[in-house]
Amino acid sequence: MRTTVNRLLMGLIGAILFVVGGSVLVSAFDLPRHWHFTLPSWWPFSGPHDVLLTAADRTRYRGDSWWWPVVIAALAVIALAALWWLVAQLRTRRLGQVQVDYGEEGRVVLRGRALEDALAADAEALPGVARSGVRLAGRRHTPAARVSLLLEGHAVPDTVVTDLDARVLTDACRSAALDGLPAEVRLHGERHRGARVE
């Protein structure tokens, strides 16, 4: 979600900057004359001696009653959107609670931190895993895990992931009565000296 928003907004701002900067450069170097093409009539600049924004253009709508409210509203919307975007980068979502429903018998609330610790401890018990860190994200009823594993020497990554899936995540789903625990796993390597067979 955040990835998509970030990329859409960055693409939008990038496109605006690129188009504005590029169109100024095209007119400034008088490319239409050198490269023999004609610009459309709505092109904002007439040639290298034109200016970026004439006083007449700048004050064109100043007399209209709608102008200043619209300018202020647009600036406010942009500023608020930027603020929201900024805050979204700083926030790291972490699931505080996982809710387990037992139908008529009621429900149990599990602390997210407890489940994270349990998952990490189970993962570290797997062969080939030196350390592990787990973060829960998602929603209370449908949590998702982000797992980071530090591999020991002689670990087989394929096996580690299969084990993690078959033992750790499946066990967690069973004990927390979850339908499933989608997980994103990153495997890192631990720098160590190689052991050589003489």
Binding site: G153, V161, A166, A183, E184, V185
Partner: peptide, 22 residues
């Protein structure tokens, strides 16, 4: 088979290959 999505660091892959080669 499960809902797991895994990524391996290139450093880690290099270490695995190195350890086996040694």
């Amino acid at each position: 088979p499960g809902r797991i999505r895994a990524g391996l660091d290139r450093d880690a892959a290099a270490l695995v290959l190195r350890d086996r080669a040694l």
